[in-house]
């Protein structure tokens, strides 16, 4: 993390994102915000908040409900000198803009032999837990992680949210930020001023010797809670916060596997063909394989759309007791 100094105070995740955008708007005239209802409404999750009043409607631009077009406009603007931050109202709506994100943003630089870059930032409120059911609760980050040319990050703390957003703005290539909706109100220490968190670097949130839990976004917090409970039982779990899905921090993950010999991947996206599959395969293909002392466990979302009923909704994604149980079985040599 590079920091411009200054103090540290408590901010919510949403406030930290807003502060990052505020800093960017104030310091770089090329930065614009685009998205549905991000102006006077303040954004569906109040992330942009009052920024429109300070920077005007020309820079905090309410778009029509046109995700494909909106994303494409942001991409075109990024190719021609602006630094747009495009907010999707829900990450689920990325499905409407897949063409522009996947065929255009991700590929233009390569197709054109490096003649242009597409420095666009896209923000995606993601994840379940809000009772919004199947079309407003998905965790689709792995889809985009599959696409060369994109960068995909998943901040789990307010400080990282700000630092990764500012890093994304400095990045010459498309960066997609998946923000878990349940984190928006979470408070945490956030340094003042401008600083960046490197894209592609995971963070070890808690060291441990017995096993390592690799998680992203809200699952980091569940993993930490689980690790606390496990510690009381004498099981020391390392918790790694992925922070970036693409590029993924291979070194940190493999190193943790080499040290602990046991791996649990926890992620909210559907388990099959997800981030956990990638991490597992990465380990299996590497020399860290030779340090595995138990099967790898993946805890991912259920093989179902996110349901509405609160109990069903909870059951559809990994919860703290699931992580504790898996870790116990793994560390206890029962798997």
């Amino acid at each position: 993390m590079t920091t411009a100094g200054g103090g540290v105070r408590e901010l919510s995740y949403a406030e930290a994102l807003r502060e990052a955008m505020d800093i960017a708007l104030a310091s770089d005239p090329r930065v614009i915000l685009m998205g549905e209802d991000i102006g006077v409404y303040g954004g569906a999750f109040q992330v942009t908040g009052d920024l429109v009043h300070r920077y005007g409607e020309d820079r905090v631009i309410d778009t029509p409900i046109s995700e494909l077009g909106g994303a494409g406009v942001a991409i075109g603007a990024a190719m021609t000198g602006l630094r747009p931050i495009y907010e999707f109202q829900f990450s689920d709506f990325a499905t409407l803009a897949m063409e522009q994100i996947v065929n255009q943003a991700a590929k233009i630089r390569y197709m054109l032999g490096g003649a242009v870059s597409v420095p666009v930032v896209m923000r995606f409120p993601a994840g379940s837990g809000t009772g919004a059911a199947a079309q407003h609760s998905q965790s689709l980050e792995a889809w985009f992680g599959h696409v060369p040319g994109l960068k995909v990050v998943q901040p789990s703390t307010p400080a990282d949210a700000k630092g990764l957003l500012l890093a994304a703005l400095e990045d010459p290539d498309p960066v997609l930020i998946f923000e878990h909706k349940l984190l928006y109100k979470m408070k945490g220490p956030v340094p003042e001023g401008h600083y960046t968190v490197p894209i592609g670097k995971a963070a070890i949130r808690r060291p441990g010797r017995d096993l390592c839990i690799v998680a992203g976004a809200i699952m980091v917090h569940r993993a930490l809670e689980a690790a606390e409970a496990l510690s009381a039982e004498g099981i020391e779990a390392e918790v790694i916060d992925l922070r970036s899905i693409r590029p993924i921090d291979r070194d940190t993950i493999l190193d943790a596997v080499r040290r602990t010999g046991r791996l649990i991947c926890v992620y909210e996206g559907v388990k099959t063909l997800g981030i956990g599959a990638e991490i597992s395969a990465m380990v299996a293909e590497s020399d860290a394989f030779d340090f595995l002392d138990a099967p790898i466990i993946r805890l991912g979302g259920a093989e179902a759309p996110i349901p509405y009923n609160p109990e069903l909704e909870k059951a559809a994604v990994p919860q703290v007791p699931d992580i504790v149980a898996a870790a116990r079985a793994l560390a206890g040599g029962r798997l």
Binding site: I32, G70, G72, V73, G76, A77, Q100, Q104
Partner: peptide, 14 residues
Amino acid sequence: LPIAVGSALSAKRL
């Protein structure tokens, strides 16, 4: 098409 609009947006902003 949307990229052209983005390009025009840049021209206007800049």
